[in-house]
Design a protein around this nucleic acid. Structure first.
Lengths: 115, 115
DNA sequence: TACTGGTACTCAGTAACACTAGGTAAAGGA
DNA sequence: TCCTTTACCTAGTGTTACTGAGTACCAGTA
């Protein structure tokens, strides 16, 4: 049994973050939605489900950040394998830059207002 | 002139974060909306304006996280000074716990999927 | 008095995102 | 044939930051 901390709702804090996480996963290796859900769950985002991930993938496709390819599977229906392209790499870099920005400023506020 | 980096829209990454930042500022010292806006701007969140902060303060009041007191000002209309109470301290602690959680998992995803 | 500018608060409407709760469908095994 | 696992999709909901406009108080000045 894994170490489980009762964690409140993370929804708001995940806004914008999950898209970055998905892009990072895709940058490492092209893969498909169902697998990404399991990767996120395995990374600790236990409550993230398909209804969250598929819209993200559609969004990335619409923005032109990924290439899509239908691949037949031995087990179950065909998979849509997503690959991060050049535009996606740029979007990912932008994400990390913005994350770093927010993260740093928040830390500053914490330190400057710590008693 | 300050070091300015062209930073894209932070809106989504700020979801949930600003409420935490406001609580942290209030924990340090009771203060009022207008001043909080300037504190956030000074901390680097340059685009955060009154239309963002005042709804947060109303929300915190509705949730019972803050106490409010009308204080006359020498300059301009009376101020609504907010004080973080016990419930607010708990909410702030919960915020930092969730922030740490998301931050850590995201870092893990970055490292595990770095090439 | 009238005007100006800085201070301080409010609120209706918008956009974006995670999430819920369903649904469809393909393949293999009992 | 039915069930499970795999794999994808989507309409609707709630929460949040943000925009833009408005109200109002006060001090100084002409």
């Amino acid at each position: 049994m894994a170490l489980e901390v009762k964690m409140d709702d993370l929804t708001e804090l995940l806004k914008g973050v999950l898209e970055g996480a998905v892009m990072q996963i895709l940058r490492h290796q092209p893969t498909y939605g169902y697998e990404i859900v399991r990767a996120l769950n395995g990374a600790g985002f236990a409550s993230v489900s398909e209804g969250t991930v598929y819209p993200i993938l559609l969004r990335l496709e619409k923005k032109g950040c990924v290439n899509v390819e239908q691949v037949r599977s031995e087990m179950g229906p065909p998979r849509k394998v997503y690959t991060l392209n050049a535009a996606g790499e740029a979007a990912l870099a932008s994400f990390w830059q913005r994350w770093e920005f927010v993260s740093t400023r928040l830390q500053t506020i914490k330190e400057d207002n710590n008693d």
